[in-house]
Every structure is written in C-alpha cells, then in structure tokens.
Design a protein around this nucleic acid. Sequence first.
DNA 1: AGCCTTTGACCAGCG
DNA 2: TCGCTGGTCAAAGGC
Length: 633
Amino acid sequence: MSLSRRKASSYPWDLILGKIITCMAGTNNRGALMEDWMLPSPSPRTQMSSFWNEEFSCGPFSNIFSENCSNKTQDGIDKTKSSFDSSGEETVQDTKASVQFESNLFDSNEKSASYGGLAERMAARAGFGILKIDTSRVSSSAPIRSPVTIPPGVSPRELLESPVFLPNAIAQPSPTTGKLPFLMPHNCKYVTPSVPKKAEDRLHDDSAFSFQPILRSKPPTFLTADKGANVVHQNQSLANDNQRESSLQSNSTGTKDITDTNLVKPKTCDSMLDNDHPSPADEQEESEENENGEYSSAPVTAPAEDGYNWRKYGQKQVKNGEHPRSYYKCTHPNCPVKKKVERSHEGHVTEIVYKGSHSHPLPHPNRRPSVPFSQFSDLQADGPENSGSKPGHSTATLQGSAPNGHVHDVHNGVLETKQSGSLTTTETADTSVMESREAVDVSSGDKDEKATHGAIPSTFDGGEDETESKRRSYYKCTHVGCGVRKHVERASNDLKSVITTYEGKHNHEVPAAKNSSGHPSSSAAPQASSLHQRPQPAQASIAQFGGIATYGSVCLPPQLSAASGGFCFGMLPPGMTLQIPSPGTTMPLHIPGHPPAVQHYPGLMLPRGEMKVNHEEQPVAARPVSETYQQRM
DNA sequence: AGCCTTTGACCAGCG
DNA sequence: TCGCTGGTCAAAGGC
C-alpha cells in the first residue's frame, strides 16, 4: 500500500502536530510552547522525509489557523498519488507503542487513481495539500513509544474534519470538525460518551487502544439523490467528508454481489456514527450487537448512537411497512430535530430518517439532556452557523434489509435508498447526525447494482472512488476478522445528499456502548452467545471509543493545548492502528516538510481514562470521538 | 424525581 | 367529504 504503511511498526508520531503547530506558531506565536513540548526523541522528520517532501509546510491546519500559510496542495497531492502507486500490500503491526497497520489488499492502481482524484479534489476544496508521511525510515527498534503516523493522503485537516465529526461540525465548532478554530480555551475533552468502567479498566489494563487498518471494501453501487439543503453546516460537514475521502483508499469500480446481507445493523458507529457509525456514528447506527455478536434491537442505543439524546414519542406500524417505525425527538430544548427509525422485528435498524438540524452542540457524552444547555451554548459562539442552529430541514435515511435490489427515491427532500440486504443511509439537508455516526464520506460512482449487506460497523476504513457526479467512499469494519463494509456515496454537486450502505454482518460486538445508562429497550434483541469474539483490548479500534471507525482523535499536550487555548486536534487516519502503551502516553508527531524547529512534538496526549474501549456494552454511548471535544470559550 | 418508552388517540395532509 | 395514512400527542407506567 502506501509507503506510509511500510514501516508502521515503530515510528514516532511525527506527523501532524509539527505541521499544525508550525502553522499555529506562525500565526499565534506559540512556537516557544511547542518547543517546550518537544521531546528529545529522534526527529521524525528524518524518518519520514524520504518519501514525503516538505511540501506540506502549510497544511490544512494553516488554513484553519490562518490564511497566511500558502499551500502546496497540488504538489502534495501529486506526491501522495505517486506514493500510492508504488504501494503494495503490507501489514505492519507493532504491538506496543506503535501504530499498527494492516495490509490493504487494494489494487494499487485503482487506489492511486481514485485516491489521487480525491486528493486533488479535496486539496482543491480544502486548499491544502495532502499530508504525506513516510514511515519507511522508522525502524522498529526506534525508542519511540506509541508512534502514530498518518497515512498518505491524509492531512491534519482531514483528520480534524473527519466526517465522523460531522455532528460536531454542525452542532459544535471544534477543531475536529473544522468548524472551529483550533484554539480552544479549554482543554478538549476526550471523554467518550458513556463508556463503561469495565471497558475503561480493560483498556487501562491493556494500556492501549488502536486504530485498525481497514481492508478495502468491494465497490458497491449506490444511487444518490440530492436534495437541496438548507444549512451551511451541512456543507461543512460534507466538506469534511470530502477531505476525509482523500485519506480513504479507493477501490475498484467493479460491481459486486453480496450474499451475506443477513443483518442490517446500524451500529453505532456511534458507535460509527459512522450508525453511525456512527454511529458515526458513524450514527452508524442504530443497532447494536450484543455480546453474541448479534445486534440487539438495541433500541436503546439507536437513538443515542448519533451522540444526541433522543426521546421516543411515538411508534407506528406504517402501512406496507415491514417494520414498525419509531419516532424520536432530540431532547435538547428547542431542538427541532426528529428522526424516524424503522427496526426489524429482530431489532435491526432498517431505516433511519433524520429531519432538521440540531440547534445545539453535540451533548456531552456523560450528560443527560437535563444538563443545562448553557454549558454548551458557549461553544456556539458564532451563532447558528457554528452551531448548526438553523433548524433547516434535513433528512437522512438509513435503510437496510430491503428485499431486493436497491431502489433510490428522492422526493420531498428526502432521499431514500433501498438495497437488498443492505443498510443505507440517505441524507439531505443537514444530516449531521448521520454523518457523524457513520463517518460518512462522499461516494461516487456508477449506479450499477452492487449488493450490499448491512450491518453497521463500528469502525470502518476505506477508500474512495469518485466519478464526475458522485463520489463514493468505501469502508471496512476494522474489527479483526469482520468483513462488514460500508459504502458512502455522495453527489459531488450536492454534498448534502448522502447514501450509506452497509454490507455484511459484524462478527463482533459493538465496540462501545451506552446501554448501561439507557433504558433497556423492549425490543432489545436477545443476548449474544459465544459466536462472536470480543475484540481484544489491544486491538480495540478507536471506533470503539465513540463509534468512529477509522479515525482517532489526538490532542496536544496540556501545556500546548492550554497555551493554544485548548487546542485539540487530530483524527487518526483511516487504516491506522494506534496502540497506547499506557494511558497518558505522549506520542511525538511529525509532519513531513515541516520546519525543523517545529518538526516534532511530544505529541499526542492520550489521557488515561479519557479514551476508553468498551467491549462490554452496547454502543449507545458510543459517540464520535469528536464528541469528546468540548470547546469552552 | 426525572426521564424514557409504550401505546392508543388525535390531527393533518392527500387522493 | 371521506377514508387512508403518517405523524404527533399525551397519559400511564417503567427504570
């Protein structure tokens, strides 16, 4: 695959921070702080630079912080592409203190092609080059602990603006969403929503969490419809998605039939958002897997998986509807958002439709709706735009287990997608929720029929494929041995419309869950049996921290963070596995091409207890990592 | 006590 | 106008 993966075994986290910081320093005069921060460890730059050039001197972050930095976007992109071209299969795994990469078996050509296209597009959109990381020089023996690298094509900004964070993008401005400036007065929060203590303990015991690489998924086909959208936030979130796409690996355009469409489980990717998701997340949504590996109807989780608090206010068996439909309202005061969820008798979510946009930031994971909104209101300093307050209309539909081939209908601003054995999501207008949960990406592509099978993986990793009118992203659940794939397709010209399709069934339980706090839903599926294996703590995906499949969040060290106003950033790129030797481990980051002075920093703070892996419970609690970033202005 | 789900009834839109 | 349907309300009860 990518060069970056060649030596993942032990390279320092040299990536992003350097660049980010550089920009920050340039704009904010925080260079000194950074230096304090810097570790004596070998410069990551050296290690990385071989492949990656210095072209990223001003990356996405610079854009974020200021316009001062010029971008060398195109160059970066080109190089990124080239790197991909040369990529091959690789599997790198470092058991401790290192990022793990699993080999992607994607066709390099396809990847490069699609990837490059995306990268370029993204770069154009974002105005920055794609970050490249060269890990080849990093030796496994390097004394660096907990190194993290960013795969080629992934820029810090992408990381921050990961679709996973879409909800935030809408609701709460934060570095991760790209909505907010990176400066945050208060430290970002890492707390994942409702993570059970067990999980936490386990995590601690393991002292590590990881991002697992994702295999390339087969290219399913979707139909997308666009709908006018109303909210600016939506656009942002979409943009984020687009950026994220660059990091994704593209896949071939071939069609594929999928036979294992048994379950449609939206997992939360909020488990994933990215639903998902994620959800999400994504909203990745709403169904959860119980220990058996079966998804419980998890009604409990469904509403909450997107990170927002929902209240069910009705249920109805719609005519001609295979499944009962439940109606949920966002419990946040004055929030107009509603969603409809259809679940199969087995508790699988077959369709989710979101309507409206949240007028508030993503609630704190640990808080109940009753918590004064004021706490969050400040986050929306800029008003509606930042907060996504405008209650525009948006709808997202997540469908699964449709009997036959896909049928996509767009009407009344609602796009519906149906695919047999698949779960799809459709969004129009503001759909922060869905996106967040599902870590939705834009997808494009042909409308050839490609069967999909549904399940909503907690973590996905993927690639992209883009066509003129549509962009499609492919994700694969990062859980070891799990074959669930997710495809996200979005019309290029209308990013507000998103269709997410899940293929396959998770063979594992949902990474994180929030069940504990929630009320058990009546429709909850039976507890799982032993069929599914629990993820190993060490292998726990970041997705498990909040339903984010492929990204992980990182934060600057407290010192720097505080100095920068609580700047917290970072999402691990897709396909990466991060292992944390111990909570609170500092990981140097390096961004190739960054000025030596700011080349690497002690890096990421992975606070103990902040990032948790929950293998025990349902993902209800699972929320996008972004959720953990609360900004306090 | 608060919040949520459940569930039957009610309301509104549409043909 | 009526009936159908989807969506919402609100009381009751559970956690």
